[in-house]
Nucleic acid binder design. Sequence first.
DNA 1: GTTGAAAGACACCATCC
DNA 2: GGATGGTGTCTTTCAAC
Lengths: 146, 146
Amino acid sequence: MKLDELDMKILNELRENSRLSMSELGRRVNLSSPSVTERVRQMESFGVIKKYTVEVNYEKVGQPIQCIVEATVKNGDYQGFNKLIQRFSNIEFCYRVAGNACFLLKLQFNNFAEAEEFINTVNPIASTVTHFIFSEVKTNLKLDLT
Amino acid sequence: MKLDELDMKILNELRENSRLSMSELGRRVNLSSPSVTERVRQMESFGVIKKYTVEVNYEKVGQPIQCIVEATVKNGDYQGFNKLIQRFSNIEFCYRVAGNACFLLKLQFNNFAEAEEFINTVNPIASTVTHFIFSEVKTNLKLDLT
DNA sequence: GTTGAAAGACACCATCC
DNA sequence: GGATGGTGTCTTTCAAC
């Protein structure tokens, strides 16, 4: 699927507010509502749009402890690591990466005890470096056509 | 603001699909639509809900190069670093963290040349460790009441 | 927090450019 | 590819409870 500038505009609008109606979305990108609808449907079915979701303030939701963990799997037991982390529901992301570490994860916890518990659970399989998050410096993001 | 189990249910539903109508949302959590609407409005105004947004597949959008960068600022010039990264629009997040590094950032690029350019721009102010992302292992996330 | 009613907006379709 | 107009449905919003 080839995206044009209009698709990018649509994505940027939806990224700012995914609850826009198709007609309002059309107004913002100067397109009729049937046209926007079709473009959006296309991007959904091609997987360009993965999910409509919500950004939550974890502190206000009772999970004030956030951290990013570098995990280096021992003895190349990637399967075991994969399996292990599946049971946690407080993982925002887990990426397989190049570099010293094998995986980078972001997690939320209700308190430090929970964080410790997680690390203890993982450590038999992977060594970890934990970066607790102090604050969010920047999060904006715009898509451009190259 | 004190959240109860119903609020959590609502958040989890919206996190899975932020485009649900209030009436449909009400159906799913067994609440009338006026009640859901009020709860959602509350969570919006208290900042529990930060933003309704969309998850995009960066590869399909023409930004196949993703990485997480650890940045360690030289000479404690945090202001300079902050200012520097503001001009980039391809930063998904930037956290101030504890640990060896000062900041952790996630970025998207159209190609390696752009990634190199970013690193070159940052290096006078901060040393960096770059982890290119191979794949996304896990991303689900549910909120629970403690 | 619920129900019910009224107004409005929306999505959808067919048609046409 | 995109726009327009009409129709039916769903939603929102308000009132009263």
